[in-house]
């Protein structure tokens, strides 16, 4: 088990390397630079800035320098957020994004799996149609519509929750962002669970369990639930990585200091180190979550071997 985990991490290194290299050179190929402002800087100032940040060196030297620093755990200074290193920005923003993303994953699993199993047990009933219809609404309406509408209804009209802001992490401030992040995931998870449960209910071992006269509750919990959350687990891998690395839409609309905003802002401002840092962090989370998914999968389905 431990050696498997170790091997998986070693196996991820070449992937990370390719991703870092590709995004480094893509970013540098884009026209413009971090110090190209609307009002051009004085050429000597520009030259000094470029020298301080090593932007005057040949591109390949910069690339090697970046890799070397990265290995030592140094993401470098941010070009746009002066006085902050990219590491500082992540240290401040990542906990926020992880709290919201983690909350959203938990909520989505709880509601999605429950709704999916419930709909499957009452297939073709009103409750089933209701779940399926709501799920199709949930997957159709994009987050950037849901977020402001939730903020409008619960924040402005009803006044139950703050319409935005982080409020130093007060629970009330987290509810709307978490719900917004969870809604599309709930829709997908409910659909997946419903499909897998319907299939599991028809399988031989469930029929046998019923024939033995086991109570319906224990048939569902011990014999079908395991099978019904397998597709959810494999779906959640990449989705969870996206959730904990923050959503630019949710963070913009609710005014949350997470790391989701960095990607768009830094790419547009040519904040090279911050872009690279974001790419690296996202890639690492994808690797971690894929590993967790595989471990969970092997635990839930003993037929799957880890090698």
């Amino acid at each position: 088990m431990l050696s498997y985990i170790l091997r998986r991490f070693l196996g991820a290194i070449p992937t990370l390397f390719v991703i870092i290299t590709a995004s480094f050179f893509m970013m540098r190929a884009a026209p413009g630079g971090p110090f190209n402002l609307d009002r051009p800087l004085d050429p000597t100032v520009m030259a000094n800035l470029n020298r301080v940040f090593h932007l005057d060196e040949p591109l390949f030297t910069q690339y090697l320098r970046y890799l070397r620093n990265l290995l030592a755990g140094d993401f470098g200074p941010s070009f746009i957020y002066r006085d902050f290193s990219v590491g500082d920005l992540f240290a401040n923003g990542l906990p926020v994004s992880i709290q919201l993303g983690g909350g959203a994953i938990a909520l989505a699993l709880l509601v999605g799996v429950t709704a999916g199993v419930y709909a499957a047990l009452r297939q073709n009933s009103f409750a089933d149609y209701f779940v399926v219809a709501t799920a199709s609404i949930g997957t159709t309406i994009p987050t950037f519509v849901v977020a402001p509408i939730l903020s409008l209804v619960f924040g402005v009209w009803l006044g139950w929750l703050p319409a935005g802001g982080w409020g130093d992490g007060a629970i009330a401030n987290k509810i709307l962002p978490i719900v917004t992040l969870a809604l599309p995931q709930i829709a997908v998870i409910a659909r997946l669970t419903r499909g897998a449960t319907i299939e599991a209910l028809r399988s031989d071992h469930v029929r046998t369990a019923r024939a033995y006269g086991l109570p319906a509750r224990s048939v569902v919990i011990t014999h079908t639930l395991r099978a019904s959350i397998l597709p959810v687990i494999s779906y959640l891998g990449p989705a969870a990585a996206a959730l904990v690395t923050g959503s630019v839409v949710v963070e913009t609309i609710f005014g949350i200091p997470g790391i989701g905003r960095f990607f768009v802002q830094s790419a547009l401002n040519r904040d090279y180190t911050l872009v690279m840092g974001t790419v690296v962090v996202i890639a690492i989370f994808v690797v971690i979550f894929n590993l967790i998914v595989d471990l969970l999968y092997a635990w839930l389905d003993p037929r799957v071997r880890l090698d």
Binding site: I137, T140, F144, V145, P148, S151, A163
Partner: peptide, 30 residues
């Protein structure tokens, strides 16, 4: 919708009507 989202405190119609339109189009297409 972006403009509406920035103005929800005072001018809800800026968000509501574009959002309804987009939802309608997306539902119909789906």
């Amino acid at each position: 919708i972006a403009e509406g989202a920035r103005n929800i405190e005072g001018a809800t119609w800026l968000l509501v009507y574009p959002a309804i339109t987009l939802a309608l189009v997306l539902f119909a297409l789906n």
